[in-house]
Design a protein around this nucleic acid. Structure first.
Lengths: 182, 182
DNA sequence: AGTATGTTGACCAATGTGGTCATTAGTGCT
DNA sequence: AGCACTAATGACCACATTGGTCAACATACT
């Protein structure tokens, strides 16, 4: 995730993971296999997130709020999954480029499709460019998410953090609702 | 910028830069000197940006709009300056870590101090949490900036792009003003 | 004790590392 | 053209790191 495929040496990996070189190559035939495994693992985690989305919730803010919390919990459990996929998208190494090609984009596309499915857009005020409004909402959610992740390590109790996170987010959401909703 | 100090090999650098190894080490004593030069060069570019800020403009949206355009032009001229400093902040290499230490943060702090100097906050509606509003504004500016940068390469004429960029940004700004201003 | 499974790190050939320097190419001047 | 000077080159160096192997060891269970 930090260095990309070519510059991620197995020596560094085993040192960081505190396992021996032999053990790594006992479980994986080669470096590429390890990468592929990690990639597919990350994909699977994100697919799980998609499946947990409640499509009966038609309010956009509520929907995104739920996803945000899920994401937070996933990030606590698997801290590098999202970053790994994000960086894999701009992987330069010829050895894995072919394998990745288009896969991440496809997942993101599927994600946005699900996330915005069956949303009740009649709640938005007239004269508003809804697409742009959603972009703004997305950007502030990402921004807020990043901010939260930086603070997450200072909290022991994830549940407690989740509550405070939710409460704080609601005040940001309120500001945007003021402009977005009727 | 892509690999960090340790994993940025001089071989790769000269290949990418299309110069010979000898030429690189004719102008720089060693790899660290090159890094330090690049760092200070980037800092200088950003300082220039700060100096161009018009402090007589007290409207926050106008102020940020001007800075956004300046940033866009800088990005066109020096495409990696901002990314270089952003990644240098999380540089792990012991060889340059000490040199960077705190410098980037200091520059960012100075930046935010200047950017929000003498802003007329009386324009904001009552009951609004101004700090949070500014965060939202920042996040959407970053988001919009990223989006613009991805499109910038497809434009030949930077001036033309700047105009379209500005026009599009104004419609985002309008949505936020609806919530922020009286 | 014996077997099966998991883990280790010294070791390997191959490649890559930051850096050097004698040689060559290019430029400007007379 | 000839000369002087600067700038660019890439083969070369000693050494470090690379992905990957494998015989030896540790542990757990019957």
């Amino acid at each position: 995730m930090q260095n990309g495929f070519d510059h991620a040496s197995t020596n560094e990996i085993v040192k960081e993971a505190q396992i021996s070189k032999g053990s790594l190559f006992n479980y994986f035939n080669n470096k590429k296999d390890l990468y592929v495994y990690l990639f597919e693992y990350s994909v699977q985690i994100i697919e799980q997130l998609y499946e947990q989305i409640d499509l009966n919730e038609t309010d956009l803010f509520e929907r995104l709020e739920n996803i945000g919390i899920q994401k937070l919990y996933i990030h606590k459990k698997y801290p590098h999954v999202f970053d790994f996929l994000a960086t894999s998208m701009q992987e330069e190494s010829t050895e894995v480029k072919e394998f990745i090609k288009g896969k991440v984009e496809a997942i993101y596309d599927r994600g946005t499709k699900i996330i915005y499915q069956d949303i009740d857009y009649s709640k938005f005020r007239e004269g508003l460019d809804i697409e742009k409004a959603i972009e703004i909402l997305n950007w502030t959610m990402f921004g807020f998410g990043d901010k939260a992740i930086q603070q997450i390590s200072s909290f022991e109790n994830i549940g407690e953090f989740g509550e405070q996170y939710l409460k704080e987010w609601k005040s940001y959401a309120e500001i945007l609702k003021f402009s977005f909703y009727k």
